[in-house]
Design a protein around this nucleic acid. Structure first.
Length: 829
DNA sequence: AGCACGCCGACT
DNA sequence: GTCGGCGTGCTC
């Protein structure tokens, strides 16, 4: 191989149109310094605009076909963010898997705020600087600008506005025309590394007496410092000054005498105050935990890639298993990533890890500042931290030495990104573990149908924890048929059973959690008398009620119908859209139980920073008797005095316009029920519903996951849903509605003909093009095309979509019409 | 995205 | 005969 003189760069132009590698020549000064993954500045396009890019490949002259006409790399930013080879591999994999651009993928892997921005800076034309004085009299503002530029060599546009005012543009352009001043563009980033000054001893500390004997008697402050520094050897500057009661001047004198060294050291901003946290001891595992632990440990020790599904009932002690696995991984000098559905909703698991592992844990959460995030990234990259805990984006933590990824509550939909690229955390984690010969552990009390199916097929190794950690029984679950309540004259949202139980528990000083599920934007049409729900005949999905047109619509295939006046099933007139009215629940509870303390836990009451923690804390201290909450109460809460959980209506999730509605219901009911009776007191759960015979409701009452799985998997097969079939959603969007519709139609036809031509593709369903349910977002019209096909055909279909939509985009798509791909949609909204 | 090239109509 | 409208295509 010849000398590395060329490199292939991904350029950040901000469009998909330039989503490929561009070859640049490496100037001599950068040969050897430029690495794969380096951030570079390159000239691009006709105007040679300077842009940021990342080196994806290095090439020798022999490997480059078309050498003439190449431009040169302008700069290599070695102090900036750098991608590892593994990360570049991950980018390529993401682009291939999710049909996103290189830069979409890169954006996931680097800390936010590190993408360089540009600003205009002005300076005086150096050629005229001598002849400037006393000319141009009478132009006050122009002179003022010149004055400012004489004082500071360079001034940004913003600073000029501050000094002169918003009308400064016209003076600037006059000065530019007269060639008195010049403009140029400068790169900057929102994040700067923070440095601290550190003092180091610069003589042999053992020979301190000799050094001291050479000091003047008058230099008592210097002597003080020398004694101190000989003992500690290295200390932060501000600490020496404080401890020895001296000043910077004294240090300067010592520095001059070469007795100490003052160095800049990168300082990390630490978002968690570790000292405040008391440490926790290792708990002994019970035999079920021990089996799971030993199984996984064996693979970790062998450095083999393997995927485990840890199916453990609520309260079975999965976290303790996680922590002991992590402990072994870090002892091996490897890194571990622990993913949780949402960091703010799972403070208890985060706390457990901090108590066990202290400052070796990086907690990545959405409230970190850009600087904190950047520091954590660098710390992980430099292998100074071994454990990363965070929500889905933490899967991209730059661990070069990965041994283990744990995904807790793996069934949660928050692991699916709804931003571009619309990745699934489990897929990314799987890829990373495969590349690193690491182990992936998916944990859940209610595994997703897809994961459990994979476990059955042997793709995941299944490990089970069937008992609660402290041998407590699972709570007793009762179903209340709300149709009967209506029949017997109770039109209230509380059944008599739930009301009585609440009264009982509260009287004996216990706590109650009420769970209600509010999904404002999607309501369904149902009969309060018989429980009948309007569904799509093709898709077996609840129809969504649209207020404006008074119609019910299918989100999958676009089928729509009028809302009937009387129930087609039982002829009653109680058929209408399912009103949430959930804001009223709190008021209603207050009216029913005026002497008890009630608190609501939802997005409204927890939007303020720290308010969620506050509510949970005071609930833990039993300052609240009744906690009313949305999904937030289903996760992770672990309080001994909670003996009753009431689900106000299982129907809201049961009738989500989604093929996962039953799965979601089973998961939610099981999770929320798991909050009751975790410690010394027995737990009770009451589920109110209009569909008491639904299999999801019944299996969750019986705590029977397998029963639910067996019924659900049959329906998935029958109605052609995952895991047997896969769905792809292509969103066509743009500001011009006519162009969007035109493109969507052309795209649809092309996909139809291409998939028709491909041999061996059976049972493909193409739905659309339909306007997306949220038809207009940020001034963009959105239409969508859904493809449903057998999972085995995924690669073929992906190839066809990529060929039509990316490689030949401008043949079928109008300019300024964009495409977004969702290769595994969770929500068709 | 931007920027140049190019083909067509309006106007000095 | 020239100026400028915007559709088209490329960016190492």
């Amino acid at each position: 191989m010849g000398v590395i003189e060329y490199c292939n760069v991904v350029v950040n132009t901000g469009t998909r149109a330039t989503d490929r590698l561009y070859t640049y020549k490496v100037p001599d000064i950068f040969i050897g310094k430029i690495k794969i993954g380096s951030k570079v500045i390159i000239p691009f396009g006709k105007g040679n605009k300077l842009l940021e890019g990342f080196v994806f490949e290095l090439k020798s002259d022999r490997e480059i076909k078309n050498i003439k006409g190449l431009k040169y790399i302008k700069d290599v930013l070695n102090d900036d963010i750098k991608l590892s080879r593994a990360q570049i591999k991950l980018c390529n994999w993401m682009r291939d898997t999710y049909l996103c651009s290189f830069y979409d993928a890169i954006q996931c892997l680097i800390p936010r705020g590190t993408t360089l921005k540009k600003k205009k800076v002005y300076r005086i034309n150096p050629n005229i600087i001598g002849s400037l004085i006393s000319s141009d009299e009478g132009f006050d503002n122009e002179n003022k600008i010149i004055q400012m530029l004489m004082e500071n060599k360079m001034i940004s546009h913003n600073e000029l506005i501050k000094g002169i005012g918003y009308n400064c543009n016209k003076y600037i352009s006059r000065l530019l025309n007269k060639k008195i001043i010049m403009v140029e563009e400068k790169f900057y980033s929102d994040i700067k590394s923070k440095y601290k000054k550190v003092v180091e001893v610069n003589f042999d500390p053992k020979k301190i007496d000799k050094v001291l004997s050479n000091m003047s008697n008058r230099a008592y402050k210097q002597i003080e410092i020398l004694k101190y520094i000989a003992r500690v050897k290295r200390v932060e500057l501000k600490d020496v000054i404080e401890k020895t009661n001296t000043s910077r001047a004294v240090l300067n004198a010592l520095e001059k005498k070469n007795l100490i060294k003052v160095v800049d050291e990168k300082e990390y901003r630490t978002p968690v105050d570790i000292d405040q946290i008391e440490r926790d001891k290792v708990n002994k595992l019970n035999w079920e935990q021990e089996i799971a632990y030993a199984n996984i440990m064996k693979t970790i020790r062998n450095h083999r890639f393997e995927k485990y599904l840890l199916h453990g009932v609520t309260g079975s002690g999965k976290t303790e298993v996680y922590m002991q696995l992590v402990n072994n991984v870090i002892k091996n000098n490897q890194q571990a990533i622990i993913l949780v559905p949402e960091i703010s909703l799972t403070p208890q698991i985060v706390e457990k890890f901090l108590k066990r592992f202290g400052e070796n844990v990086a907690v990545l959460h959405s409230k970190l500042s850009l600087g904190e995030r950047y520091d954590q990234w660098k710390k992980i990259k430099n292998n100074e931290i071994s454990i990363v805990i965070g929500a889905r984006s933490a899967v991209f933590a730059p661990c070069d030495n990965l041994g283990l990824i744990i995904i807790d509550e793996e069934h949660e939909s928050s692991y699916k990104s709804e931003m571009n690229p619309k990745y699934h955390t489990i897929d990314v984690a799987e890829h990373l573990c495969r590349e690193n010969n690491a182990v992936l552990v998916l944990g859940s009390a209610t595994p997703s149908i897809e994961s459990y199916y994979k476990a059955q097929k042997g793709e995941y190794k299944l490990l089970e924890l069937k008992n609660r950690f402290n041998k407590n029984p699972l709570p007793r679950v009762e179903i209340v048929d709300m149709r009967v309540e209506l029949e017997e004259g109770n039109k209230a949202i509380f059944s008599r059973k739930l009301y009585d139980s609440m009264k009982n528990e509260l009287l004996s000083n216990k706590q109650v959690i009420l769970f209600l599920n509010r999904r404002g934007y999607s309501t369904f049409v149902s009969c309060r008398s018989c429980g009948y729900v309007l569904k799509c005949l093709n898709c077996d999905i609840s129809l969504t009620y649209h207020h404006r047109k008074n119609v019910a619509k299918c989100h999958y295939c676009g089928y729509q119908r009028e809302v009937p006046r009387i129930c087609p099933e039982c002829k009653s007139k109680y058929i209408k859209f399912f009103g949430s009215g959930t804001e009223k629940v709190e008021a209603y509870v207050n009216k029913l139980f005026p002497s008890y303390r009630t608190k609501r836990l939802d997005i409204d009451t927890t939007s303020k920073k720290g308010s969620l923690e506050k509510i949970i804390e005071s609930f833990g201290k039993r300052e609240i008797d009744i906690l009313i909450g949305t999904q937030m109460v289903t996760k992770g809460l672990d309080f001994p005095y909670v003996t009753l959980v009431g689900v106000l209506s299982a129907d809201i999730t049961l009738n989500l316009p989604d093929y996962r509605a039953n799965e979601r219901t089973f998961q939610l009911l099981t999770q929320v029920a798991g909050r009751a009776g975790r410690h010394d007191f027995e737990g009770n759960v009451i589920i109110q519903t209009y569909s008491p015979n639904n299999y999801a409701v019944i299996s969750s009452k019986n705590h029977d996951y397998k029963d639910f799985f067996n019924k659900e998997i049959r329906i998935r097969k029958e109605f052609c849903y995952p895991p047997f079939y896969n769905i792809v959603n292509i969103i066509v969007l743009g500001k011009n509605e006519r162009n969007v519709i035109k493109s969507a139609n052309r795209l649809f036809q092309k996909i139809e003909s291409e998939t028709g031509k491909s041999k061996g593709l059976n049972n493909i369903q193409l739905l659309g093009p339909n306007p997306a349910i949220l038809g207009r977002i940020k001034d963009n019209y959105r239409w969508q095309i859904l493809l449903k096909y057998q999972s085995v055909d995924h690669e073929t279909i992906k190839g066809i979509i990529n060929y039509i939509c990316n490689k030949n985009k401008n043949k079928y798509i109008e300019s300024n019409v964009g495409l977004i791909f969702d290769m595994k949609p969770y929500n068709i909204f």
